[in-house]
Design a protein around this nucleic acid. Sequence first.
DNA 1: CACAAATAGTTGCGCTCGCAACCGACTCGG
DNA 2: CCGAGTCGGTTGCGAGCGCAACTATTTGTG
Lengths: 153, 153
Amino acid sequence: MTARSTPEQTLELAAFVPFRLNRLADGVSQHLAGVYRKRFGLDIPQWRVMATVGSKHDCTAQYIAASTRMHKTRVSRAIAELEVRQLIERASSSDDRRQRQVRLSRTGRRMYSELVPLALEREAALLSCLGPEQLAGFMVGVETLERFLQLED
Amino acid sequence: MTARSTPEQTLELAAFVPFRLNRLADGVSQHLAGVYRKRFGLDIPQWRVMATVGSKHDCTAQYIAASTRMHKTRVSRAIAELEVRQLIERASSSDDRRQRQVRLSRTGRRMYSELVPLALEREAALLSCLGPEQLAGFMVGVETLERFLQLED
DNA sequence: CACAAATAGTTGCGCTCGCAACCGACTCGG
DNA sequence: CCGAGTCGGTTGCGAGCGCAACTATTTGTG
């Protein structure tokens, strides 16, 4: 075998931060998936659209795409399905007839007001495993990385 | 707890930790994608298999699936492609003829030894935006969450 | 020993997604 | 105005993935 002075550099996937971050994000998603899928029949894109439209009324598909960082086709399809299910409504904008204003319907608002507390509760349950100062330290890291990767809105 | 005096609870996606974690993990993946895709023609499953096989010789597909937390079909297909490209070799195990021992080929080892330093360098570049104590605080949070979600190996 | 249950790995199928092409609407320079 | 370029949004298509079913082998139980 090769007798190099330095041993071959190896990479332990379990200690590789990008991998761990992916795995963690995926685990968190799973942890939440039940809330919107099983109970409300929403998949992730639909849930994100609901959340966006719920907090900012009369927004466009483009705005949703930008703020959720989803591809516009993904947004388009999520909106289409939500409209079929009558959870949102679309009205053609008066000043630019290319874009259509998206808003929650009556039933959509009802679902939203049920959905939000559950989601926040799950988030809180997740973060409850961190002490206050641990949480703060963690979030500082998240924010710094977001800024570094220019992921902020 | 609070009566109707509080306004309707809303959820700002940009402040919702699960969403931010997904976005962050995705950003980090993008940040790395160039390394294995553009330069070595590997996609993520293939890269993970390479990394796993590189650090643990003679492992089975099942082991790879467990340690990367990928679905066994995803692993199977990644291995198949890597074998076609002659980056790995498979030998049927003597004691259990269902499983096949996977290891890097000569060219696979060469690629691995090129790939690992680049990946580690990228990881370091990413984490360099955090100061030492920020990094430590961040990693403590990651570890705690991993343990909470039972994602450790 | 025989047969049921479990296990390693592969494959058919349907679904989702991103890319690129597209359609209709706006804009702006000439 | 008119045409080129741009922009909001949709759709055809191919790639990748997970589920479930399958093959081949091993293990467990009577």
